[in-house]
Design a protein around this nucleic acid. Sequence first.
DNA 1: TAGTGTGAACTAGTTCACAGCA
DNA 2: TGCTGTGAACTAGTTCACACTA
Lengths: 230, 230
Amino acid sequence: MGEILSAGSIEGVVRKDVPERVISRLPIYLQTVETIAATGQTTVSSEALASRSGVSPSILRKDLSQLGRPGRRGVGYACAELAATLRSFLGLDRAQSVAIIGAGRLGSALADYAGFRGRGLRLTAIFDVDEAKIGTTIGALTVSDLSELATWPDDIDLVVMAVPASAAPAAARIAADAGVRGILNFAPTVLETPDSVRVRQVDLASELQVLAYYSALDDNAGTPVEEHSN
Amino acid sequence: MGEILSAGSIEGVVRKDVPERVISRLPIYLQTVETIAATGQTTVSSEALASRSGVSPSILRKDLSQLGRPGRRGVGYACAELAATLRSFLGLDRAQSVAIIGAGRLGSALADYAGFRGRGLRLTAIFDVDEAKIGTTIGALTVSDLSELATWPDDIDLVVMAVPASAAPAAARIAADAGVRGILNFAPTVLETPDSVRVRQVDLASELQVLAYYSALDDNAGTPVEEHSN
DNA sequence: TAGTGTGAACTAGTTCACAGCA
DNA sequence: TGCTGTGAACTAGTTCACACTA
């Protein structure tokens, strides 16, 4: 993907096109700087912020310099201001509305998983197709029929897909038709969506299999494996 | 690229130095090729496999060529053979043993989330520190006290961390001390671990915030976004 | 003086295009 | 002939090093 040259260009809006790689690090910085601010610290250096975010200081400075509101040379970044800039840049000023599709165990767990409130996200609805689940309550929300998504009164910006792989493509189509802007997909399937819908994939088994690779690598470490020191 | 002397090929499996970027795509290929094989198809071209995996054909060919067991020119890849090679390469021949730390809603949901069995992973134990949860049953497993992890009879290769952010660092240390090889961390904290423990981060809020960025971008398409002149 | 902002150098990753083999 | 395997060209991402400024 990538290839953004269409939207907005008519107006002559020169959008600095920030790579997704960078965008995906910003939430971590936000999280970190909020944690630091909560301790009462008012400024933070790139070095401290970077190490607590798990990145290098230079990459952190490059990333933050891209969002226009700079730090102060010789001082560092003002925590509160930086957090506000990050929130605004990520589009979290108005809380994005999130719906969960799939009211099974995973969907229910995600529904009250910490981190919607206070992270610029507002959980708006939970959908399912299972008659037995529709009408039941999860946290403060009642499970609705997925067919209601299309005409849902509150605009839904983002969807968390927590359904089996077999049901995911159909549900994704419904979400896309309803004008949803992004899907966070927990089902182990590659979703095909129109360009207007961004998909991010989270696959438990894939992640574990990546870890399995390195685990197995170490198993064989008795025999001379690559691993060279420097 | 530092030339690596992977001469130690005493055990048949010689693993070159494959970038993590590549490793993290292999589970997707495995998933895809298994799906294709299940339809009865015996061979598959790089183009078909790539498009169903959401990558370009050239990158797929480069990736697969790195694992030594090639496809057949003019034909494609033999599904069954490719799947076996991928499984073996990822270290899934002997099912890796996985433990979940945290028997809350997320932990319980992940415990019976499809994809352990038949994906080369074996869920071995669930731990918690909460007296009220220890001894209760989740699926086929009984929740054990986290302190038992260190002396757990069955070796634990990988851990899924499903605890609050505040509890994660301590739990990670316990896991690292117990010789765990990898941690899949759902808590929104950067974990510091010794080099022997690989961490992969999955943060619901971060992922949604990335999607929020693109969602907000579209909202502002046409009106000047916060932008500074160069 | 301390610590950011940033061009330049470097490194990693992807795509291209075609040689080579079933 | 068809499709993989792969070097070469290209592109993206990271690190370095230091000018610059509060």
